[in-house]
Amino acid sequence: MKRRVLPGLPLTLGITLLYVGLIVVLPLGALIYKAGTLGFADYWRIVSSERAVASYRVTAGSAAVATVFNLVFGLALAWVLVRYRFPGKRLVDAIVDLPFALPTAVAGIALTTLFAANGWFGAPLAAIGISVAYTPLGIMVAMAFTSLPFIVRTVQPVLEDLDPALEEAAQSLGGSDWTIFRKVILPLLAPALMAGVSLSFARSLGEFGAIIFIAGNQPMQTEITALLTFIRLEEYDYQAAAAVASVLLLTAFVMLAVTNLLQARALRYTQRS
C-alpha cells in the first residue's frame, strides 16, 4: 500500500529552517567565527588569563555546590510531593516552578534584599558571622534558586511510576526503610537524578541575571564567567568577549551532550523496568 503523504512539508520545513538558521545558527556561527579570527596564541592568552580562570573556578565551584544542594533538597521535595499527603501540597507543587517563571532580575534583587546584612535572613546570619550577599555564598544561593525545579521535575515522574512491589519484596525480606531506600529506591532513581543534576549544573553555569545583583562582582573572587564576558563588552574589548563567550558556548555544548547521554540512559532504564 502506498503511504499517503500529508501536505505542507515545503512550507513548514522552510519556515523551520529559515527561523532556526536566522535566529539560532547564524548568531552562534558569527560568535564562533569571531573567536576563530583571534588566532590560537591570542585566544589562549585570553581564555587562560588569571582573571578568566578565576571566573571559571568561581562559576563551576558555585554551580557544583548549588547542584549538590538541589540534589538533596530536590530529591526530598520530589519524595514529599509524591509519597505524602499534607495540607497545601498542591500549592507547594505549583510553587516549585516559580524560579522558572520569575524573571531572573527580579529573583536577583529579591534574594539580595533577603540576604543583605540588614535583610530578613542576612541579619541573623551576619550575627553568627556568615555573610551571604556579595560573597561566593550569594552566588550559590542564586544558582540554587534558579535551578531548583530541574531535579524535582525529573525525579518526580520516575518516583510516581515506581513499582510498590519492589519495596514490598524488600520489606518482606526484612530490609529496614533506610536500607531499602539506599539499595532499592535510590538506584532506580539514579538515572533521573543524574539527568536532573546535569541540567541543573548546566543552567547554573550560564545563569547571569539572578547572580550579578547578589555576587558583589569582585574580579578573582565573586566574578562569574558570564559577567566577565559582559564586562569585556562594556570595555569594547570585543575579541576578549568573543573568546570568553566561546568558552561558555563550548561548555554548554559539552553539557548538552552529557545531558542527552544521561537522558537517553535514563529513558532506556525506565523503559526496561
Binding site: V24, Y33, A202, G206, G209, L227, T229, Y238, A245, L256
Partner: peptide
Amino acid sequence: IPFSISPIVAGVAYLFV
C-alpha cells in the same frame, strides 16, 4: 540549543551579527 546556552552568550552572538 538555546535552552542550554547562557543568555549572555546569546546577546554577544547577536552583537557579532
